[in-house]
Design a protein around this nucleic acid. Sequence first.
DNA 1: TTGTATGCGTTATCAA
DNA 2: TTGATAACGCATACAA
Lengths: 340, 340
Amino acid sequence: MARATIYEVASRAGVSITTVSRVLNGKGPVAETTRGRIVKAIRELGYEPSWLGRALAGQRRNAVGIVFPDLAGPYHAGVIAGLEAWAAASDVALFILGIHQRARSSALVEEFAQHVDGLVLTAQTVQGAELERLLAQGIKVVLLGQPVQADVPAVRVESQSYAKTLTEHFLIHHGLDHLCFLGDPDLSPDIEERWRGFLDGHLSQGRRPPSEPWRTSLRESDGYRGAMELLATPPALQAIVCANDELALGVYTAAVERGLRVPQDLRVSGWDDIPQARWAVPGLTTVHQPLEELGRCAGEILTALMEGKDPVTDTTWIPSTVVIRESCGCGADCRGEIDG
Amino acid sequence: MARATIYEVASRAGVSITTVSRVLNGKGPVAETTRGRIVKAIRELGYEPSWLGRALAGQRRNAVGIVFPDLAGPYHAGVIAGLEAWAAASDVALFILGIHQRARSSALVEEFAQHVDGLVLTAQTVQGAELERLLAQGIKVVLLGQPVQADVPAVRVESQSYAKTLTEHFLIHHGLDHLCFLGDPDLSPDIEERWRGFLDGHLSQGRRPPSEPWRTSLRESDGYRGAMELLATPPALQAIVCANDELALGVYTAAVERGLRVPQDLRVSGWDDIPQARWAVPGLTTVHQPLEELGRCAGEILTALMEGKDPVTDTTWIPSTVVIRESCGCGADCRGEIDG
DNA sequence: TTGTATGCGTTATCAA
DNA sequence: TTGATAACGCATACAA
């Protein structure tokens, strides 16, 4: 019924638990014949060491965790895949936690931390004092897409230059004048960068800086509502640069409702390159983030941290790719990718 | 640096750890003044009980886990959302594990199990002997979309009747004759049900039983390749009923390449109602699974199990919804939903 | 009302 | 080469 313990193995093999522990961990000298008896006992009992006992005895937990605000968005799957690839190669377990706006989410993360040696914290999960607490307990932490904090290693995607490239694409290649940014820069540093890149694009062309961003959260319905209002009042907008793809798809719906064709009457771009972006008609021009690369990179930093290398504290920047489809007004002639 | 322990709290409050434990767990009598001192000490030290200590001392872990083959598909997000809703309401932590075809995945799950009181196991994760091992260790288990096992509670979506409905929709409403099922019934019991419902639909109409399913795995590229071959050889297929949406979208691509229009020249249906299904053109007729409901239901069974209620061992069946869009050949007139 | 002592399953230190 | 035994942090039976 219950699991076998090291004591049962020891008594069955006629040795002490110390010796069993030695063969289990492969350290310390054990006579070949003794080892044979112990291995046999282990097999016969189907014994597996208790993770709890090990962890309590101060051992490595041999697991890392990643924390997401929730697992609904387009973001997590790619990151997890990358991190998982690293974890499998490192023979470390990967546990995942979504905090889902829970009331006691802070306690939740702290408890989660007890199960692992290292934690990857994505945007909108843990910050400030709570993060300090975690660090104080000796948990290794890598931030993903979070505002950079002193002395905490982070992985970020470079957004600003791609937003600039995208904006210039509208401004120069398509010769537009009247663009609007949809999304709230205060929601995350990544989005703030996109907004700044949007500004950069205007400034680099000597254009009048665009109006304020139309601040909204990031769901499709927010994009629909935002666009409905933006398109209600003159002067007519030529393009809406969205903070993510879901907003952009909401804009599609609003455009239909306002009797506007995309891209003939209204150009749209998104960010993230979610699966729908490829299937929507017209195909959504967007920015593809190398999510797997992000996850893998976080894993490698975790390795360094857990091996106690000289403390990594700098931010690693990962590049993206602009994906040109049709929603920006490009035809088959200019589809493809642009480098930042 | 390190966490405070119950001993430090005790000494600071001038009591024994027993008394601290008592106020921590709210059981046993404690004098009001003593409790005050202890509460104060706890606050001052920022003490939080060690999850490890508690678990090792034989307490409930106050966490449940869910295991997926991987987190890339369309499946997991909804299920997690539902399970998470239950978990939050029950004040239980939810940990997630993806096994990602790891070599030592069996050991991985067993280790994961030590962190939790109960486990939700989805299809293609744990079966047979390994499952028995888990159960033998007293872990509470709920199966999700798995073949039913004796004495293990399970939650399943009813697929067969919806597959039948969908097939009859093609056969009767659209008056077709020559349908083909794309996908491998051996991959999961759910898909096998879909195939059986496809057969049922033919038989109920006294039609000649269709040819064997075109066996393939479930990625979009498989759908593309499968359809390319299916459409290469006469007699001309009128409709392809796909085992999931991703396959169906692959069929879209193949149709374009073969110069066929969907739905005029070829009808298509999918299964799952992934986000792309709504955005693809034409909109994909598919079957929507109440994923959140699935998760919540699994959670509730877990509650019963963990409270040691009389053992739940039966399978709970959850109903789906057929979502009619345009890929089956329906126009605006018959869009909507059909009940099973 | 409070405290002592033991067990939970390991690893690690030291002694034999 | 092996074994007692003390941590690790908590809950709890039993004693006071």
